[in-house]
Design a protein around this nucleic acid. Sequence first.
DNA 1: TGCATATATAAGCAAATTGTTATATAGTGA
DNA 2: TCACTATATAACAATTTGCTTATATATGCA
Lengths: 113, 113
Amino acid sequence: MKTAVEIDKVAMILKLLGDKTRLTMVKLLESNECCVCEFVEIFQMSQPSISQHLRKLRDVGLVREQRRGQWIFYSVNKQHQYYCFVAELLQQLPNQEYRLKQLEKQGMRITCC
Amino acid sequence: MKTAVEIDKVAMILKLLGDKTRLTMVKLLESNECCVCEFVEIFQMSQPSISQHLRKLRDVGLVREQRRGQWIFYSVNKQHQYYCFVAELLQQLPNQEYRLKQLEKQGMRITCC
DNA sequence: TGCATATATAAGCAAATTGTTATATAGTGA
DNA sequence: TCACTATATAACAATTTGCTTATATATGCA
């Protein structure tokens, strides 16, 4: 039954996004590239914890990684089967750009290559 | 910080909806009233399990209950603070009405009062 | 080459989640 | 009142989640 499969997949995605750290990450990544150390600073969480959240997002293909120098930049994968669904959802969230602005003010925004 | 609070609440709702049983329930309840025993039949799960899922949805106010005779009918609470958000999301899900049709065919749809 | 930085991964643990069974509560109808 | 049906709740077990600490890997640079 095709619909059953799809609602299952949507549920899986919602479960992934049902965590405030991951949800905020994806919201930021939708319009920015960020690396792990930036998230460590933004969320004030340990590096392994941040890496694990990103891994979950990457495992289902919601985000992509791209190494540039010593940093690995993450971004939303706009080719994902459910990207439209996710984008629609993200659009309704309050903007989180202030977190990056704050980072920049602290001189901790990574701009490379 | 107001936005932080709101993204937290959205994450909480997504977590709730990030379960295929609850997601399907809410999708059905958006356009139908259903009672516990119907869900037991639809999802082939134990009655306590169904009740517990409904309780979670009710605890955050996403669904309402209304007793009619021996049955308690559930429906989506369209007055909920995040109803618009949820409705937008549900709209993108595949229709689940076939589940009720099937129930009706088996003569197990409850129509009361 | 050697050291510092950025990131990933493994292992362990506490808390949360989701189901189960058993039992309590409430309405219906004889 | 009694028995039946519908539902809720409590107690418990198995699983999952999300963090922590420790360690491995990869890049940049002196």
